[in-house]
Nucleic acid binder design. Structure first.
Lengths: 251, 251
DNA sequence: GTTGATTCTCACGTTACGTGATGTTTTATG
DNA sequence: CATAAAACATCACGTAACGTGAGAATCAAC
């Protein structure tokens, strides 16, 4: 009953491709018998091994790994399985993170208002680098405040992101006009309102936080000229509000 | 203010490697200015493009895709984002499936009893091919029964898998002894009990189901000889139970 | 002028095969 | 038995996004 199958019939039995069997032969993970003319013949034992291979592959193991797993009869499988599971859980967390980013991105582009690409990228970056931001924020705020910041519901988060994007867009539009003009100053007010709303502390407090020096590359969606203009507008606004400000805060 | 950075300083600003910038230059996704001697110099505009690239890469897009996305100023981003999200959701489902398989695998190897590798593979395969099985089962059972089958809680599922593995192991052990011996027949009884318990119908009913011809390669964890022996043992058992059986049911 | 740091261009390695191109063996048919 | 058609064989290159040297050229500093 020990039938031997040619490679053609074997692939029909197993569902893998001929090339795959060639490859497995090449890397010595599944070596068939050879006829005198060099043709490959597979039997039931090969069938079993192949099942092991595809199953373990399905579980996420690499062929290199599988090679060891089926060679070493002494399956120390448990360890491998645990390791594998940890890796998969990490992968899933990673994907969840990406999906979250995609959701926020979709939320932004969903509006009728087209969003400037630099703003878009800046905001999405902010979301994706959330964890870094969190760590960074804990330098200047209490842990509870930071936690509260990240515990706000998704909807609200979306809302804030949208307002932030809109504000940045409008800022970019008025850039170049009078920094002390009515429009500009209205936007400044909205900006600090948003700041306060997001961070949950007063404007004056924000400016007095001693920001630790760090080169974590949070990209600003503004050109040099725009940043300069922004600096002027903020200065006017803060002066009117009667808030002291050190020189050289706006890089 | 339009500073130009050498590649060395640029990588320190951005965090990517030199090789990456070389590569991006090569595939024309981020082309810096060149000095007369051929050295690369990057400016703020390159910085912005690079931010876009890394962000979109984070969102799961391929460089080929990104190339189009930043070239075509007309961002039809929304479509791409939706597509991307769908892909990611699929990926996550896939990973969830794998994790489920790993859990079952861990549950099996967790026992003191070592499990024969063919049995192990067979069972894990059954779990991983769950969906196929479901479809297959709907050919012979009612939809509700099938649904009920897959709705049983995880713990119970684990329990059944364990019993099944144990049974198969013991069967393999007595293989070769008298198919009508006491031990063999006890195992037969447990086997049909398990069948009944799992599928939820009587043994006689199982054997009368007309199984559709399909080459869905469900691998049995038995060698040819073992299968032959199994056939005999089953025949004895069913005869004692007074159940009719057609010839040629056991392939 | 000489060293040391920086940067350049090949060019191969990675994973698990897909996809031809081209040559040989087996099988089927007249 | 001759010949055509399948089946099967072995190269060998392509994939995605870089990592990792090797060896040569350029730059900044002493």
């Amino acid at each position: 009953m020990a039938e031997k199958y040619s490679i053609g019939t074997f692939v029909k039995l197993t569902g893998v491709t001929i090339r795959t069997l060639h490859y497995y032969d090449e890397i010595s993970i599944l070596k068939p018998e050879l006829s005198s003319s060099g043709r490959r013949y597979y039997g039931d034992d090969h069938f079993i091994i192949l099942q092991k291979i595809v199953t373990l592959k399905f579980l996420g193991f690499s062929l290199e790994n599988i090679k060891d797993l089926i060679k070493i009869e002494n399956w120390n499988l448990k360890e491998s399985l645990i390791f594998q599971k940890k890796a998969m859980l990490e992968k899933r967390a990673q994907i969840d993170h990406i999906i979250k980013g995609l959701d926020s991105a979709l939320n932004l582009v969903d509006e009728d208002q087209p969003v400037d690409s630099t703003i878009f990228i800046s905001i999405i970056n902010g979301i994706l680098l959330e964890d870094d931001h969190k760590e960074w924020l804990e330098n200047v705020l209490s842990k509870e405040k930071v936690q509260a910041l990240f515990d706000i519901p998704q909807e609200e988060q979306f809302e804030l992101e949208k307002r932030w994007a809109l504000l940045l867009t409008e800022l970019k539009n008025v850039c170049g006009s009078d920094p002390n003009g009515e429009e500009s100053q209205l936007l400044m007010k909205e900006m600090f309102t948003l700041f306060t709303e997001i961070v949950g502390v007063e404007t004056s407090a924000i400016l007095q936080m001693n920001v630790p020096e760090d080169p974590s590359h949070v990209p600003l969606p503004f050109t040099m000229e725009e940043q300069e203009w922004l600096g002027k507008a903020m200065k006017f606004y803060l002066e009117k509000e009667g808030i002291e400000i050190d020189e050289g805060d706006l890089s």
